[in-house]
Design a binder for these strands. Structure first.
Lengths: 349, 349
DNA sequence: AACGTGACGGCAATCGTTTTCCTTATTTTC
DNA sequence: GAAAATAAGGAAAACGATTGCCGTCACGTT
């Protein structure tokens, strides 16, 4: 196994190089005025002993740990991961590390984690979650800056970085209108979820701006494929005439897609489909692949981390910051070779 | 914002309580011999100042940081998350925190992270990855214990905790045999992937034990639904007669399922289906829901963390440790109300 | 020869806690 | 009533690294 017994200390390095600890420190950090030959000797000694400065001892002095905490309020999942990755990206570049904690929706557990993070003297904390609901602040008078990412804080003075879901929904409708659809239905998640309400409202509003109304009132249900399939049953059973469905998630969209095909409706010829999340597993697995709205979660995480770094350095950005969503077009809204019956002139490709 | 300026130190607490720092420390840690009244006074002072002992300073003394690093070799994804959660569970109970690092498949980046973790004096490191390939050890002569989870190390002396994929594949075949299927095909991922090879070999071997051979040689392809659909095309085009398909992943199984239904074959009546991973998104989204093999990744993560803790405390467990998989039965291998034509006696429910 | 001046490095304080000795009182025991 | 035992808490030395300050050379200048 060859496990080394002990970490080398700077005293070991100094001894091996034949200098004092202070000098060794200066040599390794490029401080003070030393002969180049001395620096070289110290560096060589450090290399030989695979010396790595003890970050804890170092931060005792500097007051900074170059460490941030990331707390998920409910459970780390499909949405937290990209946010985490983006944050890691932004922080890694600045040589900071992330402590990851999973609150599992338990406030007690969460408070326990906060205390742990504070005792480890993190320079700041990023809070994230599985849903875009606003949540009560982590605590009051915390001695380090906090940034909420994806999820937001109910205190408008806190810094929250969130996806512009309403904007995303509008883009979905824009796209459907652009390809000539006007009888648009909306199938989405539970009405108690903020995301479902916001997206539905924005879609309805965008239609109203064109003097249109939805093919049916928004259908609220679950976020699952099963619900998507059920919703198609409801749509077909009613009198509603529709040529497009905007779905609150890709899973719903996929369920809708499968059910429509089973019912003999062609996608996209008879019914165009737009999902939400741009989750490759769903968008690529569906037949045909799904057009979807991407919340740019990685960019969101990066942005949150950058705001946190700025706050740590004394320039906080209080308030809510919305990150734009963008549309990713796939075959569920475009016919590959476009003899589109409604398009006036046939564009090549 | 009400941001507190500074963390309180034990000196502040001592001053407020009117005792020396040493005494304050003893009072808070239940050491030394002190009057109960004194302890109470100190605790009260600590509470007033929301004092949290500086973990860095503390570990300077104890030599332990109660912190472990978790390094993903390629990218944190669907498989790493449950492992991470399991590990967090096992460690959280012992009050340790996790530093999360994403190597992104870049050895340089990985080495950089290792150095960072070592400088932060983590007590140990868990290495994980996206695939079950064996990988070269993280480094030699590292001063802290390492445990590989999900992924394994090429050095048999290292401690690796891995899923028993072969056992899982055998259980899948066992189940198909138990429901009377004998003409079993296998569709799986790329042959260059260890997982695909191991599962295919185990399945073939299990069939051979019954004097059976697979309906076709294993079909290697990708891990996607698209491949699952293509594979059905191949199966149907060939002469192969099959009454069951064991798939290397749930995504493949889902593709197979959709394509079979499109081709007019009933699942499970005509063809029974078993997937691998027990990924709810796929197993529940498919029609019918999929029977699958669960690798128990959370348990695996927990076990890895426990082994790491043991190693930190001086009792390493070198070698490869396999965690059993288990079968989760759903409708893709069972008819809900079982007038099973091949079953001799109708069991109630 | 006396002095000034950089260059080079050592010394020691510092960061926040823990822990090992000590020093005081106070009480017990013969 | 004196010696000894005990309780309570203070003083100071670690832990590992950084940094400001100061001493000591070896020069060059007048």
């Amino acid at each position: 196994m060859g496990k080394l017994e002990r970490h080398a200390t700077i005293a070991d390095v100094a001894a091996l190089a034949g200098v004092s600890v202070g000098t060794a420190s200066k040599a390794l950090n490029g401080r003070g005025s030393l002969r180049e030959e001395t620096r070289r000797r110290v560096r060589e000694a450090a290399r030989q002993l695979s010396f790595e400065a003890n970050a804890g001892a170092r931060s005792l002095h500097s007051g900074r740990t170059y460490t941030v905490g990331m707390v998920t309020t409910d459970t780390i999942g499909r949405f937290s991961i990209p946010v985490l990755m983006g944050a890691e990206d932004a922080l890694g570049a600045g040589e900071m590390s992330i402590f990851l904690c999973d609150g599992r929706g338990d406030p007690i557990r969460e408070q326990y984690y906060i205390r742990t993070l504070l005792s480890r003297r993190v320079d700041g904390i990023i809070v994230t979650g599985r849903r875009t609901e606003a949540r009560p602040p982590l605590g009051v008078d915390l001695p380090v800056p906090i940034v909420y990412a994806f999820i937001s804080s109910t205190d408008p003075g806190d810094c929250s970085v969130v996806p512009d879901e309403a904007g995303g929904a509008r883009k979905a409708i824009d796209h459907l209108l652009a390809i000539g659809r006007t009888r648009i239905a909306h199938v989405t998640g539970p009405e108690r979820h903020n995301s479902a309400r916001v997206r539905a409202a924005a879609a309805t509003e965008r239609l109203a701006e064109e003097g249109l109304s939805p093919a049916t009132p928004p259908l609220f249900g679950g976020w699952s494929e099963v619900w998507g399939r059920q919703a198609v049953g409801i749509l077909l059973a009613g009198q509603a005439d529709f040529d497009a469905v905007f779905c609150g998630s890709d899973q719903i969209a996929r369920g809708v897609c499968d059910a429509l095909r089973s019912a003999g409706r062609r996608v996209p010829e008879d019914v165009a489909l737009v999902g939400f999340d741009n989750w490759d597993v769903m968008t690529e697995g569906a037949q045909p692949p799904l057009t979807s709205i991407d919340m740019n979660l990685e960019g969101l995480g990066r942005s949150a981390a950058e705001k946190l770094l700025a706050a740590i350095n004394g320039s906080p950005s209080p308030g809510r910051h919305a990150i734009a969503c963008h549309l990713v077009v796939r075959e569920s809204t475009t016919v590959p070779f476009p003899p589109a019956p409604s398009s006036p002139a046939g564009r090549p490709r």
